[in-house]
């Protein structure tokens, strides 16, 4: 009864977020514009990655600079398992024979990418989750640098810094929508689980959480593995959206973008993670259009190049000045007029 009650009281959040994502998909589908379609696919990929980040950072309060490493692991799994064997033989001759011959559908590659990333999250996390605060953050960054260095140098298996091409491109918007919605539901399910509750308690008062019986490294590790899996699957789909991967596709640029979206949306909120992506991505898109030039009457209005980055930075500073905890803070969209609840709260008020 009690469990059903938690689910019933909090299910509105993933449903509202899914409806928002579906709205974006329907607009892209109705517009029939291929560039716009690709933009919305990018947005859905960012949603997957930022929700993956939220699953760990939001619940644990530990800032991770390393999660994009899991997207990298997933992205290369997509390359290893979906590129035609002949092309793999040329670009990555060191792959074992069974992997060289493997050619699986994109969705299976996404699952495999998630599983591979989850395995490595378990290995790294077993050590990293004993750390806290800035030490943990720096260690996650070291993990990102390590993965990047390995993938940039292991030329027979990853083609080093060369682009790995030939990954089958998936242009339909629907698989990305489904994956983004799945990521939202996985993140929500973790958040309302007993591990999610214990981890949020440890985020606020680690000493009191330990005195309440919470094994903090263990619950952090569970979150790390689940978020690693989401990031890995996201990375694989990312590879399928552009058909090409390099180690630098999944490095500092993507780390900065995804973390910014989470911070702007509100680190402690699943709704914030999704809204952060939707708001910042929409803004980036508008600025891109303005930079490319918009027809106004007989002339063309265009912003000078580079305004996109400057405006984006200014908007982020403004949002954080007025809402330091991000747009959503620790609250969730619940569809009710009353105070928004966090997922996991039974809300007995």
């Amino acid at each position: 009864m009690a469990r059903a009650s938690i689910l019933r009281r909090t299910i509105a959040t993933p449903l509202i977020l899914s409806a928002l994502l579906l709205g974006f998909a329907l607009i892209a589908w109705a517009s029939g514009s291929r560039p716009f379609n690709q933009t919305v696919i990018d947005i859905f990929l960012q949603v997957i990655l930022v929700v993956g980040l939220y699953t760990f950072i939001g619940n644990s309060g530990v800032i991770s600079f390393g999660h994009i490493a899991f997207a990298c692991l997933g992205g290369y799994v997509a390359a290893w398992t979906t590129i035609k064997p002949m092309m793999k033989g040329i670009a990555m001759p060191g792959l074992p024979d069974w992997l060289m011959q493997m050619e699986i559908p994109y969705w299976a590659a996404a699952l495999a990418g998630g599983a591979f990333a989850a395995f490595w999250a378990l290995v790294f996390g077993a050590v990293l989750m004993r750390l806290s605060g800035i030490a943990a953050s720096i260690a996650t960054f070291a993990m990102l640098a390590m993965v990047n260095a390995i993938y940039s140098n292991w030329s027979s298996v990853t083609a080093a810094t060369s682009s790995v091409v030939g990954i089958p491109i998936v242009r339909s918007i629907w698989p990305y929508l489904i994956a983004a919605i799945l990521a939202v539901f996985v993140a929500w399910a973790f958040s309302v689980s007993r591990f999610g509750l214990a981890l949020r308690a440890a985020r606020e008062e680690p000493t009191a959480a330990a005195a309440s019986g919470v094994n903090i490294p263990r619950v952090r590790l569970i979150a790390f593995v689940i978020s690693g899996a989401i990031m890995g699957a996201g990375g694989a789909l990312y590879a399928h959206s552009i058909g090409i991967v390099t180690p630098d596709t999944f490095y500092l640029g993507l780390t900065f973008t995804t973390l910014s979206m989470l911070v702007v949306g509100g680190m402690g909120s699943l709704s914030g993670a999704v809204l952060g992506v939707l708001i910042l991505s929409s803004l980036i898109q508008v600025l891109r259009w303005l930079e490319a030039g918009v027809q106004v009457g007989t002339g063309t209005f265009a912003l000078p190049g580079g305004v996109q980055e400057i405006a984006l930075g200014a908007v982020m500073i403004l949002i954080l000045m007025f809402r330091p905890a991000g747009i959503m803070g620790n609250s969730e969209l619940t569809g009710r007029r009353a105070r928004a609840e966090k997922p996991g709260e039974p809300g007995h008020a």
Partner: peptide, 10 residues
Amino acid sequence: RLFRDLTVID
């Protein structure tokens, strides 16, 4: 040292 952002029952 309560978990200040959580409800009492949580």
